[in-house]
Nucleic acid binder design. Structure first.
Lengths: 207, 207
DNA sequence: TGTACATCAGTGAACGCGCGTTCACTGATGTAC
DNA sequence: TGTACATCAGTGAACGCGCGTTCACTGATGTAC
């Protein structure tokens, strides 16, 4: 039937997504390295052998998850800072987007936090590549601003890296905090970012 | 024999240490969660059942490793800043000690980096507790200095936390960097710390 | 529209393997007298 | 010093279990004519 063209591949895509979602769910309490292929297929309700129709192995699935997790955040956080001139305001907005995003996608962030240093090589590489992209985008967006007049490319890069790292630390901390402690955590994180921005403001004053 | 009192427990202690060392070696390329009890005992050359004479399970061993890894660094890095007044100098010295320590104990740091966010609850708790101690020690050492006159306890704490986090990020980055890229990495890390110190200097200037 | 054939996501059984944990044991080390 | 007994780190065999991967297969979906 003409209107059902793509139905079979749509179903395949749905199963693939179900595998990714199931893996993410199971990885709330364990790492990719200790998660078994059979656990994932059992969670989805398919036979273990069917896994191979979608991924070469569990590492392959891990790479797909890393891209999915950070690939969606990057444009969201970039959009949050469009049309805003002042860097303190950019940071405030970015933190807001990040916090909302972590709440809505806490499993993705648990995964990223776990595997950023804990995972196997290829998964770590995929995560670092995404973070590198985010850092470069931030640098590109800040480069044109008056506040950064006179800044070298290197200094701009090191500043953006500092911010991205700090944001990721905040995301990881949000995952473990109790609801009543969250305001305190956010307050401290905001202050740390403000201190960094304060340093940025005076960076060119003295050697 | 009187002179051999303690021989049996010394031997036991030696086997225990061999288990810790073997686990650390095996965890260069995998996480605690995917490391099996049998791998560790095989590496040491004892029978699997003998493991239970030393640890309740692998998590128990992980907790011991976390204490061993950070428990030794903490006093070393604290000693490095004794008798030094200026905070920029304190940071420079601390970084030197950290870099030397990471080079000498890279397996311990690989373990800490992996398990800080990637590990199971009890191991993570042990790591965070050690880091908390390090942060509090730093705060206590800085509290008396003129530079921090007028600082609230909260602000001092958030500043120390920022520094400790930054140092740990540096340690983790050092693990993956190639020897030829290390100078560039250190240069960037030093600059980031200097920017933070710059922010600290002007923190009380404006709201 | 109807028919004959191709594709391929998911099936179900089977395999050999390493795992954590238990248990009764051995024999060297340590202690009491 | 010598003897009899206690301790306990490490042994070796056994268990049931879940694992990743293979394979020939089924049957619904898709395509060509």
């Amino acid at each position: 039937m003409a209107h059902s063209v793509g139905t079979r591949q749509e179903q395949k895509q749905r199963t693939r997504q179900a595998l990714l979602d199931a893996a993410l769910r199971l990885m709330e309490s364990q790492s990719l390295g200790s998660l078994s292929l059979r656990e994932v297929t059992r969670e989805v309700g398919i036979v273990p052998a069917a896994f191979y129709r979608h991924f070469r192995d569990m590492d392959d699935l891990g790479i797909a998850l890393a891209t999915e997790a950070l690939g969606a955040l990057r444009p969201a956080i970039r959009a949050a800072r469009q049309g805003v001139g002042e860097s303190e305001e950019i940071i405030r907005r970015s933190v807001d987007v990040l916090v909302a995003y972590v709440h809505a996608n806490h499993r993705h962030f648990r995964f990223i936090a776990r595997e950023k240093f804990g995972g196997v090589e290829p998964v770590r590489r995929a995560i670092f590549a995404e973070l590198r992209l985010a850092t470069d985008e931030l640098a590109a967006d800040l480069a044109g601003q008056d506040e950064f007049a006179g800044w070298s490319r290197e200094d701009l890069g090191m500043f953006c890296e500092l911010l991205v790292n700090q944001m990721l630390l905040l995301a990881a901390a949000l995952l473990d905090v109790t609801p009543e402690d969250e305001p305190k955590l956010l307050e401290t994180a905001q202050r740390q970012l403000r201190l960094i921005v304060c340093g940025r403001r005076h960076w060119l004053d003295a050697p």
